[in-house]
Amino acid sequence: MRVLVVHNYPATGLGQVGAALAEAGAELDQRMAHDGEALPATSDGYDAALLLGGGQNALADEAYPYFPALLDLARDFTARDKAVLGICLGSQLLARAFGGENRIGGAREFGWCPVSLTGEGAVDPVLGGVAPEFRIFQWHDDTFTLPPGAAHLASSGVANSQAFRLGRATYGVQFHFEADRKLVHEWNTAFAGTIAERQPDWPDRYESEAARHGPGADAAGLAIARAWVGLI
């Protein structure tokens, strides 16, 4: 099993998706696209693709000129029935690739926030294994409309488009199910300046929220990660 991992921002990490891929013995080809590393032209030689998150928006082609090629690549993986997973910015890019509308700003969520499965989500092979309502880590300002023909899998009170599926195994997931407590702790350090500016009360509430919501979120996130890897 060979998986292309596209990094769109420094220090994001693979978290629980990385753990699930390691359990499956996957070989990872990690491309630091945000840092100028070239992407493959097609999905040849890969079984799946993982598109990670980032602080930029999904329309930032001028600053990140590889975005259009990444959209083409995601379409190629999907057309050839190879599994694709986009998380946070990755989900926004997937929505764009398949005809959704990116909406910049106005949908801020941060911390362990509630998410609800839709009817389709409750029977989905990846999301259907978690509770109908659960808390999971979020960190985003932007949102998107669902691509035409996508199955709507999850929503929240802030952003209706929390998860979707196209075809058999292309998934866009807005929430950071890969971010277990270990990864969130790492983000607290790596992005301390941004958090202090935008979420100044986070240091005061982090420990209690991690203790209250972290164990359940970690369990749900790992279940989702393993289920997606199972589709590869």
Rank of each mutant, 00 (worst) to 15 (best):
Thr12Asp: 14
Leu14Asp: 01
Ala19Met: 12
Ala26Val: 05
Met32Phe: 13
His34Gly: 07
Asp35Leu: 08
Asp35Ser: 09
Pro40Asn: 13
Ala41Tyr: 02
Thr42Phe: 07
Gly45Lys: 10
Ala48Gly: 11
Gln56Lys: 12
Asn57Asp: 14
Ala58Arg: 07
Leu59Gln: 10
Ala60Ser: 14
Ala69Tyr: 02
Asp72Leu: 09
Ala83Ser: 06
Cys88Pro: 10
Gly90Lys: 01
Gln92Ala: 14
Gln92Tyr: 06
Leu93Val: 07
Ala97Val: 01
Gly105Ile: 04
Arg108Asn: 11
Glu109Arg: 10
Trp112Lys: 11
Val115Glu: 03
Ser116Gly: 14
Leu117Val: 10
Glu120Met: 05
Gly121Ala: 13
Ile136Lys: 02
Gln138Met: 11
His140Thr: 12
Asp142Ile: 07
Phe144Asn: 06
Leu146Met: 11
Gly149Ser: 13
His152Glu: 14
Leu153Gly: 07
Ser156Pro: 09
Val158Met: 13
Ser161Ala: 15
Phe164His: 06
Gly167Trp: 02
Gly167Thr: 07
Thr170Arg: 00
Tyr171Arg: 03
Val173Gln: 00
Gln174Ile: 01
Ala179Lys: 05
Thr189Lys: 09
Ile195Asn: 05
Arg198Ile: 08
Asp204Leu: 13
Asp204Tyr: 01
Tyr206Gln: 13
Tyr206His: 14
Ser208Asn: 07
Arg212Trp: 01
Gly216Ala: 15
Ala219Gly: 08
Gly221Arg: 04
Leu222Asn: 09
Gly230Arg: 06
Leu231Lys: 11
